[in-house]
Amino acid sequence: MRTIALSLLELLLFIAISPFFSGLITKIKNNIRMRTGQSIFQPYYNLAKLFSKGEVVSDTASWIFKAAPFVVIASTLTAALIVPLFIVPGSMPRLGDFLALIFIFALGRFFLALAALDTGSSFGGMGSSREMFIASLVEPALLLVVFAVSLRYGSTDVAALSGMHTVTVSSLMAAGALFLVTIAETARIPIDNQETHLELTMVHEAMVLEYSGRSLAFIEMASSIKQMIWFLLIAGIVFPVASPGPAGIAHLAVWILWYMTRIVIIALAVAVLEISVAKMRLFRAADFLGFAFVLGIIAVVCAVLGI
């Protein structure tokens, strides 16, 4: 019972907090560009609006198109259960490890890519093809990151990996590779661009182009939760923290503040990267992720050398 309650609490926290980081990144980007920009809370307003709107479904679409948002949200939330937020490790259900996390993300992506093909629009097909292309190149780099980090700890458990060890050259390299992977996975410049609907550049947006209303809200929610999960994972490697412990309210408040600040720092890094480089051609994505792969290998070698 306690496990279920804690799990639900964790999921609610993820749902509640995650859009904030999307808004934050947009805000930072706008400020650096000397624009006022939208409110930090705009993603929440968007979700609220989408939930109250009607929906248009293509007459070509089959049940895959209608089911995909639920698969996407379910798989993303399951992933969120594997990555601990505030909850003390050990109190969450024992679902799986870091490797299982990779496969769970793949489940949501698989359905979204199918749904994109389902409406028969070329945009969808284009997005689907590009997304699967990028995702398949992400996998080896991501695996090397997990490999390098778990070599030091001797386990692939996410809770164990995201805390309680010191920062080394190996973990910095791994975090660098994971950062590049995160850029690709969360549809950020230079791999993808969330701000455009230009057919030459869009990847994720092209896939979800046919969605509207509540279905789109689910997909947007899933995207921001996924983004937060990636940020948390990087934060766990670069800024390891111990779990809060029973040391009083003040201590806990400081801990929570530091916990969130770490994610904000990573959001800042993403925002700065996004405004300082241009979007790459799709085929250059292979070079970009190849670089992540090489960083991953360096991380593994460093881990073997013990530095």
């Binding site: 109250s52 709107k53 009607g54 929906e55 248009v56 479904v57 293509s58 007459d59 070509t60 409406t119 028969g120 629009s121 046919e210 209303g213 509540r214």
Partner: peptide, 8 residues
């Protein structure tokens, strides 16, 4: 909101 079926 209502769900409408329409062309792609």
């Amino acid at each position: 909101g209502k769900t409408i079926t329409y062309t792609t």
